[in-house]
Each structure stands twice: as structure tokens, then as C-alpha cells.
Design a protein around this nucleic acid. Structure first.
Lengths: 201, 201
DNA sequence: CATTCAACCGACCATTCGGTCAGTAATCAA
DNA sequence: TTGATTACTGACCGAATGGTCGGTTGAATG
């Protein structure tokens, strides 16, 4: 499909972005200078501007990548069928895997505060995702599958708060480890960390 | 106790810090200039340097305040007695209240990445706190009060991941609301969000 | 070989950054 | 009123910032 590359070989936008996002996560977006970025790339600052229009476009590309990966889950057929509680658990499990798979991009996304147009657009898409989760929890509660003694909106936030907190400590260790982590998250989040045996113990 | 104030009245370090931390949380520490800070204070930039040695001292003071508040819980007599699972739940509940009470300071703390000496010192203290939690979960599991099918280290991280995620959406609404939130967190975290009724359902 | 094309360099620019300093303003005690 | 004490101002500094631009390098094409 793609024709043979012409001209001098070098970085493509994707590998440039990978390095940029890594540095953004280490030093923070604002704390990262284009100069620092160029050093990590082994190129000069101007080389970066050959690939992207500026610092903010790097951020935009990274945030879109994370958001696209998350929303892709909600388009999967497996998410579109079944009981709300099952769909919710599926969404959690897949979100953990996406987070593990696209860790640097999701990490950057979850740190966005909304001080620029690019950041606000990303926050708006995030809110859309959160709404899907929130609606799903509410539906599962109506089904009688989620405990009714906690506000579903709070339950939803705590649930994905738990998932999102993974970026603080999880470091990639392969697909199998990621699946085990997803299991652990679902076990704790849905089943609670106390041992079962008696009702409301 | 405190003698009558001498000299020209104005900001004290605490009220200066309150404004600084608020702006840090809005724009990010690196994204906040001393100039911007001075505007929000209604003073000139130099006025800030009369109270603190520089930008980093503002950060240090804020982080220490958050950490002191968290560690104060571990010194409470109520935390020093009883079964591990009970002490753990007490620590979670009180941590939620501290987070609600000192929201801006804790928020700033949880965003620190460790790129300066001040930040690394704060991270070291945070790790100490995390260790207390982790040890407590392990002890509770040995007591048979915490489910043995998940690694206690992961359980501990998920538990406080949930607690810490509150900074992303919680906004102060009074002491009673904070207590209710602490209840909700404990209910979901310890009991799970699925309805109970059958074992390992 | 020469041409083409993308990748890249280095000097440069206006602006902003954290921070300094000598001096001024406002309050209280005596 | 005077002196002590504290809060603050405004002009300034060197360094770093994001970004620009005209020119160069190097591999594939013909």
C-alpha cells in the first residue's frame, strides 16, 4: 500500500510522538522544553517543527490517540450486548488493557487540566466516556446487580478512579500480566476487598 | 499568645500559600508564573519574595502541609489499636476526610513527579505512607479478613488509588458530606459494588 | 550521473521566566 | 513625632522559552 519512502530517512510522526509523550510524562507538559525534547530525539529543535506545527500539536496527537483507544472499546460488539453489569465489567477489563497497552498516552490524558483549547477538547471527550460509564452503573443498579446504597454517580467515579489510578504505579510487564491486573481490578472493585461469607459483613 | 502585629499589615505566609496552591492546581506548578501569582494576590512579584525565598519554597510548604496532615492520622490513638482490618478502614476513612479538608494541598501532592529535590523529598514521604498501608493490608490478609486471592500489594495500591482519585472530582460541600463520602468509599472499597447474596457471586 | 524530495541544521527572534535590589509606604510603640 | 518594624514597589537582569527561516544533507529515482 505505502509506496517506498522517498528522500532522506529519519523520524516519522509516530516515533517522534512516542519520545515526546515519554518526556512529557517525566517532566510534565509545561516542564518540557522543545530544546529538551530535541536532545532526547538526537535532533535539533527545528527538526521537530518539520514534523509537527508546534508543541501543542504533539499534545493533541497524544491525547487523541488515548481517547480513540478508549472509545474503540465502546464500539466493540462484545460491549454492545448483554446485561448492564456484564457490559460494565467488560468495559472495566478492556479499559485496564487499553491503559496498559497505551500507558504513556493514557497517562498524559489523565493529567490534562483544560488550560488550552486542545486540553479542553480532550476533557470534553473524557466526560463523554465518563457519561457512558455512569449510565451503565445506573442501569446495572436498576437491574438490581449493583448495590443500591451508594449513589450510582459516585460508584461510577470510584470505579474508574480505581482503574485510572493504575497509571500511578503500573509498568508494562507483558500481555499476560496486564490480563491478571485486569482480573485483580475487577475482583476488588466488584467483589470488595473484605472476605465474603456473611451478608453485609 | 501571639504578640500584637508590628509594621505594615498584609499577607501572611499562610494566606499567600492558599492562593498559590489554588493557582498551582489550576494551571499546574510549571505552568504558573510568579507574575501570574502576583496578579492573583493583587501584589507585585517582588512582594512574594518578601514572604518566601522562591517558587519552590511555596511548593515545599504546600507539600509538607498535605503530608503532615496525612501522617497525623497514623499518630492518632484510634489508629494504634484494634484488628488490622479495622485500623485499615479507619485509615481510609480518615484519609478521605483529610483529603476533603486539605483538598488543594493534597491535590498538589498527588501530582508531584519528582523532578526537583523538594518533589523527591515529598515522594519519599509518600512512599513511607504507602508502606504503612501496604503493611496493614498484608496483616489483615494474614488475619483472614482480606481476600487472599489478590496480591496484598496490589490490593493496597487499588485501595488508595480509589481514595486518591477523589481529588479529580470531589469539591467541598461541608463536613457531613465529607463523612458520607468516606462512608461510600469504605462501602464500595471493602464491600464491592456488586450486590451480595451468594458467595463469590 | 543529475534530479528530486523529505529530513535536518544553526543562527536568530521576541517574549517570558524566576529572581534581585534599592528604595518607599504603612503601621505600631514610645 | 520619632524610630522601629514589616509590607511592598518598580526597574532591572541573565537565562530560557516556543517558534522562524534560509540553507544544507542524504538517500532513492531516472
Amino acid at each position: 500500500m505505502t509506496a517506498t519512502r522517498r528522500g532522506r530517512p529519519g523520524y516519522d510522526v509516530d516515533s517522534l510522538l512516542a519520545v515526546a509523550v515519554k518526556v512529557f510524562n517525566e517532566k510534565g507538559y509545561d516542564g518540557t522544553s522543545m530544546e529538551e525534547l530535541s536532545h532526547r530525539l538526537g535532533r535539533t529543535k527545528s527538526a521537530i517543527y518539520h514534523h509537527v506545527s508546534g508543541k501543542e500539536e504533539l499534545l493533541r496527537l497524544a491525547l487523541d490517540r488515548a481517547l480513540d483507544a478508549l472509545f474503540a472499546v465502546t464500539d466493540e460488539p462484545a460491549f454492545r450486548t448483554g446485561r448492564a453489569i456484564e457490559r460494565l465489567e467488560y468495559l472495566v477489563r478492556r479499559s485496564v488493557l487499553v491503559l496498559a497497552d497505551e500507558l504513556p498516552y493514557v497517562t498524559l490524558l489523565l493529567r490534562v487540566r483544560g488550560n488550552t483549547k486542545v486540553e479542553r477538547r480532550a476533557l470534553a471527550r473524557r466526560r463523554k466516556f465518563d457519561r457512558i460509564v455512569s449510565d451503565l452503573v445506573a442501569e446495572a443498579e436498576r437491574d438490581g446487580d449493583v448495590r443500591p446504597d451508594v449513589d450510582p454517580a459516585i460508584t461510577a467515579r470510584l470505579l474508574f478512579g480505581t482503574v485510572n489510578s493504575l497509571i500511578e504505579w503500573y509498568r508494562p510487564r507483558g500481555e499476560e500480566a496486564a490480563r491478571e491486573l485486569a482480573d485483580a481490578v475487577c475482583t476488588i472493585a466488584f467483589g470488595g476487598l473484605r472476605v465474603r461469607g456473611k451478608l453485609n459483613g
